[in-house]
Design a protein around this nucleic acid. Sequence first.
DNA 1: ACAAAAGTGTTAGACTTACACCCATGA
DNA 2: TCATGGGTGTAAGTCTAACACTTTTGT
Lengths: 227, 227
Amino acid sequence: MPYSDKDMFHLAVDCVIFGFDGEHLNLLLYKRDFEPEKGSWSLMGGFLQKKETLDDAAYRVLARITGMRDIYMEQLSAFSEVDRDPAARVVSMAYYSLINIQDYREDLLKKHGAQWFSINEIPSLVFDHSEIVDKALRRLKRRAKYQPIGFELLPETFTITQLRLLYEAIYQEKLEPANFRRKIISMNLLDRLPIKDMSNSKKGAYLYAFNKERYEEYEASGYSFEL
Amino acid sequence: MPYSDKDMFHLAVDCVIFGFDGEHLNLLLYKRDFEPEKGSWSLMGGFLQKKETLDDAAYRVLARITGMRDIYMEQLSAFSEVDRDPAARVVSMAYYSLINIQDYREDLLKKHGAQWFSINEIPSLVFDHSEIVDKALRRLKRRAKYQPIGFELLPETFTITQLRLLYEAIYQEKLEPANFRRKIISMNLLDRLPIKDMSNSKKGAYLYAFNKERYEEYEASGYSFEL
DNA sequence: ACAAAAGTGTTAGACTTACACCCATGA
DNA sequence: TCATGGGTGTAAGTCTAACACTTTTGT
């Protein structure tokens, strides 16, 4: 048996799940339902199983809690401090994902004791989960600037104002509406639909959809998204 | 015993080690000295041990092969395909590191059958190591643009021309000497020493040193490095 | 003197920022 | 008609790209 002299480890995945409610960036947490630290707020997690990849495991956890598939998800970082889980040595791969908050299945959240928290009001978390969230937030801020991932947090169609509010929530700073609008439109990645959203103004605001195919073409020919 | 019903895994680290020889970006590889795939070119790696973190393990591997400490190193990504190592299930955490090629200990490299390869002439590698290298290269290109990590690949002091050649090797494209010089100097992160390097020109070129403290101050007050 | 690398100057055009202004419409 | 969010215009200032030019010194 090869490597039989080598140590073996429990491997877990922990998911930092972001959602945007139109105003604040939110984080999905749940009350841990097993020991140790049962009852404390925690990221969603689960153990890696023999016949799956880490990505598989992360999607499995996400689907269990939210009922959603086809979610934007990305590896964040491994956390491997020897005593991070006081009960046993567990190495955790952290993932972060961006979901359209309207798609989540309320019943599943309830069932798992899950709850959305504004990123400005995050409670204290078990183990090193606060550190994980911190890292995820920093990563999200950077990524949002240089890759078109913001759209993952919005519905299929959205107004430029909604998009700006999202970026303001991510960056935690105000953006000039006029300049933001021109910049994002000049990238030519949004398709304007012949429909207006009348819910926020009398004039109505055109709805747009992100054109992923076009982005991928541009990207392949050396273009790089920014801001 | 908590979690006793959960699967356990072998955990490895694999290190993508970059060096710059003044002209090309290089990668340190070694001939694998144990089965499976003994004799094939491979990244440096090792198994995680019970009482160390993944970072510890990566530094341990690096020190064993190069004799160096205090090296720039960063987690890249976990690779966890079920059959990535045909001999057994091994989940690998990939790291990449940047070293000053002049510091490496030739004797240790020889002893381990290690060798530098230009990134344009990388041989085929065992398992998924080519994929790991590919990812590391893409990460390095991005990082170099937005963080001052290039300096890790140069000696303590260097000329602006050396720095430019490094960036040209990373980006794989030519840069305007005049504009590059002005841009990097305008960042105010380099200290000019009262010494000239006479080895490449009759006029001589001033040597500079990266001022890390100043960078960290700037960074703390919101500045962000670019290009 | 001249070749060659180091380093400075200059200018056109692109992009950013800030803010003034016009538009459409429900109440 | 007027208040409100949606959307366009514009001009000053900054940044970039390209390339011409000057500096220094070993041979």
